[in-house]
Nucleic acid binder design. Structure first.
Length: 475
RNA sequence: GGGACUGUGGGGUAGCUUGGUCCAUCCUUCGGGGUUCGGGACUCCGAGACGCCAGUUCAAAUCUGGCCAGUCCCA
């Protein structure tokens, strides 16, 4: 009976209400930023993981799993890296009552867990490339406000780590990751901006970072994930070296690619509406909900038909939930819409009589379909829904981008602003002060809306060496 | 790191200023019964809370202190 807060004027309240009402996550665990995956949310997570695994393995990556604890001595080997994470690691300092001689870090990310082992695995050029990924939980002592999926202390983390022969091959791997992410995002019906971060916002220890940003409805911009080129910054301190055919030895060049359950938050934030969550079919915990409309006595035939349809769809590989509880149909519609199920099939005496089903997608589009062709029709309607979600999200992204020619235009802006930047850090920070946010960086791929390339730096006015840059308020 | 604020059933709340009228209000939720059932049904019965520990007091949800948890602002 509770109305959701308004998505446009109270986004955060709306987001939290949807996550709770859709029963995706239980935040009552009692440790800040550590939430419980509910059965419903866990289904979404498993579907997300399946997409990530499918796409990364298609690029020749293999799954591995490293331990969660890292000896402090290993953690400290790369100076920039430890500086970047020092303030937000959880430490394990005792075993039982005994103080540990070497304290252990609960991984905030796994470079320092993996790379000593990579040094053992990589001996020859024949061992390269080494492309491995893992999906594990990582831990960061976040001091700011945490939000389910979007900012948490226990992160459900996808991380690919690779070792390549040289700088150029590592660059190729970065390209390959950008392609993999394009396909992953397509499965989530999410558009995004691929942006090369400025030096001061590069991942600790990386040579450069390309991040994927999604502005949410003129609210704030969410980073969906990132790809990093490490050059030999880690391989030298960790001794990851190989012998080339000519007998010379070289440090490998490395890349990483990181994503998390934040993608689920992005799906809620990007696709959700005033009626609740909206899941694209690949991620949806259930793709189809079947609601039998059982009026009075004729009920058993309807109930049996609903079970038959559910069974038939399941055999066709669909994730189906049959809601045969004794609530009234309207209450069921309401709940499943809140939960974001893409497609609802109604079956009652009317449908039974005509050998039909009534199908209503999550955007409210209604159709009558022959019961005999239900699996094919469901497949088609889910595709149509996904396509429409992409269209809407892309429209949203386009309208969230606007050019800016003067610093004053940035003040209070909720959009991603396209501007000219000379590349100087000082000018970058001026932009960040003006927009009270971040200079996201320079677009790595064409923007979804074409803009005339800026000719002068928005901060200092210089015209030489000017590049197109983006600024926004990150979430 | 500095500061401000908050904590009442599963969720949201009233009560707190001025201690007693509180075996704690209302909505929702949950269990059971009946009537219902094509867009959040109605009704009857029932369940469920003062974050924790100490203190002040004849008396504490209410005042004080500590702790725990959370939120916001600033660096």
């Amino acid at each position: 009976m509770v109305e959701l807060p308004d998505k446009r004027t109270a986004f955060i309240d709306w987001y939290l209400a949807v996550v709770e009402a859709a029963n995706l996550s239980d935040k009552r665990y009692g440790i800040k930023g550590m939430n419980v995956w509910t059965p419903y949310g866990f289904r979404a997570r498993r579907n997300l993981d399946r997409v990530l695994v499918r796409e990364i393995e298609a690029t020749g990556s293999q799954g591995v799993e490293f331990p969660a604890l890292i000896p402090a001595t290993e953690f400290a080997k790369e100076k920039e890296h430890i500086k970047g994470f020092d303030a937000q690691v959880f430490w394990v300092t005792k075993g039982g009552a005994t103080e540990l001689d070497v304290p252990l870090v609960l991984r905030p990310t796994s470079e320092t867990a993996m790379y000593p082992i990579f040094a053992l695995w990589v001996r020859s050029h024949r061992d390269l490339p080494l492309n491995v990924y893992q999906i594990v939980n990582t831990f960061r002592y976040e001091t700011k406000t945490t939000r389910p999926f979007v900012r948490v202390r226990e992160i459900h983390f996808f991380e690919e780590h690779t070792c390549q022969l040289d700088e150029a091959r590592a660059t190729e791997r970065v390209r390959s990751n950008l392609g993999a992410f394009r396909r992953m995002a397509a499965s989530l019906a999410l558009p995004y901006l691929a942006v090369r971060r400025p030096k001061w916002d590069t991942f600790p220890g990386a040579d450069y970072t390309i991040a994927f940003d999604l502005p949410l409805d003129g609210v704030r911009t969410l980073q969906l994930g990132s790809v990093h080129h490490y050059r030999d910054n880690f391989s030298i301190p960790y001794g990851i070296r190989y012998e080339a055919p000519d007998g010379s030895t070289h440090a490998v060049h490395q890349t990483t690619f990181g994503l998390s359950e934040r993608l689920l938050g992005a799906i809620v934030g990007a696709h959700g509406d005033q009626r609740g969550a909206v899941f694209p079919s690949e991620i949806a915990p259930y793709e189809v909900v079947i609601v039998p409309v059982v009026a009075g006595a004729g009920g058993t035939a309807v109930a049996r038909a609903a079970e038959d349809v559910a069974e038939e769809l399941r055999r066709a590989g669909r994730r189906v939930v049959l809601d045969d509880g004794d609530e009234r149909p309207g209450a069921k519609y309401f709940r499943w819409e809140l939960a974001g199920v893409p497609l609802r099939l109604e079956i009652g005496p009317r449908e039974l009589e005509h050998g039909q089903l009534t199908s209503v997608d999550r955007l409210g589009r209604k159709a009558s379909v022959a019961r005999a062709s239900a699996p094919a029709d469901v497949a088609r309607r889910l595709e149509e829904l996904d396509a429409e979600l992409v269209r809407r999200a892309l429209d949203g992204l386009r309208s969230a981008i606007a050019p800016a020619a003067r610093l004053e235009e940035l003040t209070g802006s909720k959009q991603v602003r396209v501007l000219g930047w000379c590349g100087d850090e000082a000018c970058g920070h001026e932009v960040e002060r003006a927009i009270d946010g971040a200079l996201l960086g320079t677009p790595e791929e064409p923007l979804p809306v074409p803009f005339a390339a800026p000719t002068s730096c928005i901060a200092c006015g210089r015209t030489d060496g000017v590049r197109t840059a983006l600024a926004a308020q990150p979430m």
